[in-house]
Design a protein around this nucleic acid. Structure first.
Lengths: 148, 148
DNA sequence: TTCTCTGCAAACGCTTTGCACGGAT
DNA sequence: ATCCGTGCAAAGCGTTTGCAGAGAA
């Protein structure tokens, strides 16, 4: 409980710093993103928060995520064309999606191209490295004959 | 004209090789992709081809692109969440999208991570490196005060 | 009061699905 | 006759828009 309140306070400071009015819904959505690094979809965020905020509208989730993204405090990932996923970690890193279990995992690769600079005289503002394959857990399950 | 026929023949051989029945529509769509390396959207392909194939349906374009993609002879790019772009060049390379003019440009970066292998014990099947920024042409226009 | 945020309902646009027709074997 | 591809129309679905009410300053 104490941790939760502290977490919300943390989100509040965060929003104040970037000049976004820290409404209750915005705070809760940002807080959710900070504490759930699983790269949730709009639907995941909405489904979780509606349990504690019964009046929450999906429109608000959309509006809020778009606002956060525009201000650069969260990132939208399109590693899969059928869904956008969000994360509050804006430090450049790569993403891996397991084709078996669907999980998206952060991968820290050091490559200068992911940061700002020039490539072939084009100015780079942002870079996304998306990897797809089979995660180590799914590989292990396979080698155990599908056992846990 | 001679070149065009040769190009279609080329596409035909291509489809036969991967075991796809080379119908007229499929041939024309593949041929379009091979000869237009601008990473077109579904709509671009449809709008261009409808001029020469008046009965063409957008459903057929969707079906065909999905079929090609499933068979691995084309790639779908989601560098921009609002549209899928297609290309027939399946050799691993990066993509740069200019936020100013919208153009998508191939970038050849040599990085082992873009090819198959292992990262943090996760098996990689495919990788996409998407870069966004301002292309060199748009930078030049800027420094000319917007002149051509 | 004034301004902003929220949330419902409707609109929107892209993509897929269902199905019947037609051409090829 | 059978199979497969095409294309129309409709459905589906995620997202955005319009707008009125609520809440904060």
């Amino acid at each position: 409980m104490v941790e939760k309140l502290a977490s919300i306070e943390n989100a509040k400071t965060f929003l104040n710093d970037v000049g976004i009015n820290p409404s209750y819904q915005r705070l809760r959505i940002l807080d959710y993103l900070i504490n759930n690094l699983c790269h949730p979809t709009v639907d995941m965020i909405y489904s979780e928060l509606i349990r504690e905020i019964p009046t929450l509208s999906k429109t608000t989730v959309y509006n809020t995520l778009n606002l956060f993204q525009k201000r650069g405090i969260i990132l939208g990932l399109t590693i899969d064309e059928s869904e956008v996923r969000y994360e509050s970690n804006v430090v450049p890193h790569a993403h891996f999606k397991c084709e078996r279990c669907g999980e998206i995992i952060d991968v820290h690769v050091c490559h200068p191209i992911l940061t700002k600079g020039f490539v072939n005289n084009h100015k780079i503002h942002e870079g996304h490295l998306y990897l797809k394959g089979v995660c180590k857990d799914c590989i292990n399950h396979d080698s155990n004959g599908g056992q846990k």
